[in-house]
Design a binder for these strands. Sequence first.
DNA 1: AAGAATATTGATCATTCTGCCTTATATTGC
DNA 2: GCAATATAAGGCAGAATGATCAATATTCTT
Lengths: 156, 156
Amino acid sequence: MHTLDGTDARILLAMVEDPRQTVVAMAAKLGLSRNTVQARMASLEKRHAFLAFDHRISPAALGYPLTAFISVHVQQQKLGALAVSLAGIPEVLEAHGLSGRADLLVRVVSTGAEDLFRINGKILACDGVERTETSLAMNELVPFRLTPLLERRLRP
Amino acid sequence: MHTLDGTDARILLAMVEDPRQTVVAMAAKLGLSRNTVQARMASLEKRHAFLAFDHRISPAALGYPLTAFISVHVQQQKLGALAVSLAGIPEVLEAHGLSGRADLLVRVVSTGAEDLFRINGKILACDGVERTETSLAMNELVPFRLTPLLERRLRP
DNA sequence: AAGAATATTGATCATTCTGCCTTATATTGC
DNA sequence: GCAATATAAGGCAGAATGATCAATATTCTT
């Protein structure tokens, strides 16, 4: 079994519904045996279906209510060093290299507008960075969710 | 106590280190009483420090190994309807309205290049969308992390 | 269609955890 | 200094866990 099946999806959906739920409770709710749920969970973990707990921590609750996406134009030769420099900036939550143009998409959080300005400066100061373009994340049109993909897995 | 203190940060760091850890284990590891850890966790939960479990599910494990960021230029008047349309596309994980220009940043996942093409088409077909610009997320220069912000909270 | 491999179930067991309580002792804010 | 709050330490009943096992289903292969 290489790919996730409907039962896995149901278990994950149950986890989304209540993350602190016990295995026994889930088994009851899903009409599965405790053994099965436990085995599936172990299997999911082995297949790296779970990302680090970092992802569940709210930056806002930590005191960083402002999210921004910074498009960073770089000199490709210095990408390696840049990865290190960017990783040195705590407010950088993630940075992706994008296809096509020689630029990165960097997700940062900040305590406010002036803080964001300072962080942008730190990025600009990194060796290999040519210019940046900051966009504040104003409204969440679609708040993060994965459940539609899980629900789709239920049918076939 | 409005903001997160060092003890909260230590607890969260312990959670990152091992999410399935029990409260008793954490108390032992951190040199706190079980009571304290339990109370802190409850308090963190009450303050919405934890995001939904969705965030910890790996799209790759679900069969969507390709991530892309789609910049969507829109007619502002139709933002409301667009939120609904975009939410109707399962592969859209999140969508942010950006400051300044009238465009959105949409994070999508897909099973492959042709799938991404199809999804882009679905977005283009949404009422209010003028044009899109797709960027594939090639390499993760900085994989998602929040621990630097937590560790900073340990000192002062 | 038969046989093999794999999943699921139900069951047990000892150990551990939880949720909830109470009391005493810091620690902190005013 | 006093009051409010956080922490520690302990106890207790109920529940959950992890690790088994054997018996059935189910799925896959050939």
